[in-house]
Computed example of a mutant assay.
Amino acid sequence: MRQSWTGPPRARNPRFPGWPRLAGAAALLAVSIALPVVVVPRVLETGGPARQEAPPTPPLGPDAAIGTDDDEPVRLAPEDAERISGVLDDYMADRAGRIAVAVEELTTGATYEYQADREFLTGSLVKLDILTLMLLRADDEDRDLTQRERELAEEMIRYSDNTITDNLFADIGYGPGLLEGNERFGLRATEPSPANVWGATTTTAADQRRLLRAVFTDTGPLSEQSREIAAELLGDVVAEQAWGVSVAAGDGGTAELKNGWVPIDDHGGRWVINSAGHVTSDSSEYLIVVLSDRHLDYSSGIECVEYVVREVTEVLDEELA
C-alpha cells in the first residue's frame, strides 16, 4: 500500500530546545501537496481498538552474557548459553515465525540474548517509547504531566488506543521527534517509518531492553517521578492485553508491560506479536523482551511468545539459583 506523509513540518521550539513544535495550517497544506509518496510495509492494524477485547483469531489465511554494561559484558559459560539457545532453536524449527529475545535479571545483572539485533516492526509496542518521550519532555520542562497528558497516556497504554496515539505521536514530533528523543535513551536501532506511521517503526530486542532499563532502573535520563508514572500505567493494562511476558510472574508475582500485535499485508496477513516489560516473581526480577513475526494467527503468536518467556526464565532461574 502506498501512503503519503501528510503530517505537518516540525520547527524547533525556542522554549524547549531539542523538542519539535507543530507548524501552522498553511505550512501543512503546502508540505502535504509537495512531498512525494513513500512506500512502507502495509500494516493492516496497529494495535487493538480502545476498550475492546484483543482481536479475535482471524481465518488462517545468541548471545548470552552476565553484567549490566552493554558494551563489556562478562560472558556466560558456553554450555549455559547453548542450553537456552538450543531450546529456542528446536522450538522454532517446527513453527512458522521468527523470534528475538533480550532478558536481564536485575538482582544479579545476568542477561541473555537471542537474535537480539534482528529488526522487527513494533506495532503498538512503540507506545511505550512514545510514553517515555512524553515523560522526558515533562522532565526537561521541570513540570508534571498535565491532566490532559496523563489522561491520554493512560488511554494509550491501558487500552492501546490508536487514535490517541496518533495525537501523542504528533505531540512528540512524529518520526524525527522519536528518533531525536531515543538518542538520549541510547537506542541504536529503532527507526521510525519514513511515512510517519508509528506502528511501522522498526526496532530490536536489544533496543527495547535498553528502553526498559530507562524506565525500571535509575540509569537513564527519566526522573524518579516519571519512572513511577510509567510503571503505574504499564502495571494497569487491561486484562485482555496482559498476555506475554507476564507469564514469568507466576502465581505471586507482578508484571508491568506493553504488547504489540498486528497482521502485515506484505507477509500475507501473518502476525507480528511483541511483548516487553518488567516482571517480578518470588525469586527473580526480570526485564524481558520478545519480538516476533510471521505467525499464522494472533493466538498462535501469543502461544509462541509465552512459551519462549517460560523456557528462558526457567533456565535462567536454574542457573542463577
Rank of each mutant, 00 (worst) to 15 (best):
T6E: 10
R10L: 04
A11T: 00
P14D: 11
P14I: 06
W19S: 05
P20Q: 04
R21Q: 15
A23T: 15
A27V: 04
L28K: 12
L28W: 02
V31N: 00
S32Q: 15
I33V: 03
I33G: 00
L35I: 11
P36Y: 07
P41Q: 10
V43E: 09
G48T: 13
R51V: 01
A54Y: 13
P56R: 07
P58R: 10
P59Q: 11
L60E: 15
A64S: 05
A64T: 10
A65E: 07
I66R: 12
D71A: 14
V74L: 14
D80S: 12
D80A: 13
A81Y: 01
S85R: 13
G86Y: 08
V87N: 09
D89Q: 12
D90N: 12
D90Y: 06
D90K: 13
Y91M: 07
M92A: 09
G97D: 01
V101C: 04
A102V: 09
E104A: 02
T111W: 09
Y114I: 05
R118F: 02
R118L: 06
F120E: 03
T122W: 05
V126G: 01
L128S: 10
D129T: 11
L133W: 08
M134T: 11
L135D: 02
L136C: 07
R137N: 03
D140W: 15
D144A: 11
Q147D: 11
E151V: 06
L152P: 01
E155M: 13
I157R: 00
R158E: 00
S160V: 01
D166H: 14
A170P: 01
G173K: 08
P176Q: 08
R184H: 14
G186Y: 13
R188K: 09
T190C: 08
T190K: 07
E191W: 14
S193E: 08
P194A: 12
P194Q: 07
V197N: 06
A200P: 11
T201E: 08
T202S: 03
T203V: 07
D207Q: 03
D207M: 10
D207Y: 01
R210A: 01
R210I: 04
L211C: 06
R213K: 05
A214K: 11
A214T: 13
T217F: 15
D218L: 06
T219C: 13
L222C: 09
E224C: 04
R227S: 09
I229K: 05
A239I: 11
E240I: 09
G244L: 12
V245Q: 04
G250F: 04
G250E: 12
G250V: 05
G252S: 15
T254E: 13
E256V: 01
G260K: 00
V262L: 15
V262P: 08
I264T: 09
D266R: 03
H267E: 14
G268D: 01
R270N: 14
N274I: 15
S275N: 11
G277P: 12
V279I: 00
D282G: 13
S284W: 08
Y286G: 03
S292A: 14
L296Y: 08
L296Q: 03
Y298P: 04
S299F: 08
S299K: 12
G301A: 01
E306S: 01
V315K: 09
L316C: 07
E318V: 14
E319G: 08
L320V: 12
